[in-house]
Write a protein that binds this DNA or RNA. Structure first.
Lengths: 136, 136
DNA sequence: ACCTTTGCTTGCATTTTGCAAGTGCAAACA
DNA sequence: TGTTTGCACTTGCAAAATGCAAGCAAAGGT
């Protein structure tokens, strides 16, 4: 993504300029649904992001204040990435994408279960999930 | 986008494989919000998509059954693109992106008005908008 | 002190995007 | 009935982003 050039004033276009590439939302997914927080965690995801792309995306997301980098010396993994409020509030978008996917794609059973839960009480599910994300 | 290789079974990842690039959602936006339907219409959008990219995206979206191509001989613009049901149902995702953007980006006044309307009664707004899209 | 893990960077090949120009065909015009 | 115009693309080439393999420094563990 081009860091500092937006294509137009359109909110959709600007949003895509920030996180509308092949990888950013997968990193955010990993943080939201799988509690991942380190460089190594993200690398392990089954899609297989390249190391240079990962570091470029983390930097861009940080610059756009969607995630923040937390230095944590004294721990094994000494760098943590966490979602900001701005990042956390992307959650409803990810939920809608999953709901769309559930209609038109074949979904692995474990994920299907979560989507079903989200469908039962969408607003409630989003609210409680966001609350959890804020705590962490 | 790579036409026929998905990176994983994850519904989010598969969705992004279909329409998660810099341009596809803008084309879909043009169809949903601005009633655009021809190659020339899409070209005129302020983001300035290149002709080869546009035709590649239209083809990919068609192959993924998000839009369909309608030949309309006898009219000046003889090729029309229209959203399928699958495409129309991306609408809630675009709405959520706009709601997120409204919180964190500066939005042009005309678009802000629409977002405000969507916020007042989200479910109702989505339902009636989808109904309209199906008619056309 | 040495080895391992973590979080990167670098170099280079491949793929995708961007831009300018050109093509083919149908409709509109003279 | 030419001819011109507009629309929907294609093509060629440059630039940027992505992908892959290797390397590397700093901290932690043993």
């Amino acid at each position: 993504m081009n860091k500092n050039q937006k294509r137009s004033e359109c909110p959709l276009s600007c949003s895509l300029d920030m996180w509308g590439d092949k990888w950013s939302l997968l990193i955010i997914r990993d943080m939201m649904f799988y509690n991942k927080s380190t460089y190594g965690d993200f690398l392990k995801s089954e899609e297989g992001i390249a190391t240079n792309i990962l570091s470029a995306r983390l930097l861009a997301l940080e610059e756009n204040e969607i995630i923040e980098k937390v230095d944590n010396p004294g721990t094994k993994a000494r760098v943590f990435y966490k979602l900001t409020q701005k990042g956390i509030e992307l959650f409803p978008i990810l939920v809608e994408i999953h709901l769309w996917a559930e209609k038109y794609l074949t979904i692995p059973p474990n994920i299907k279960a979560i989507i079903k839960e989200a469908k039962k009480d969408k607003e409630g599910f989003i609210k409680s999930s966001i609350k959890e994300l804020k705590k962490a």
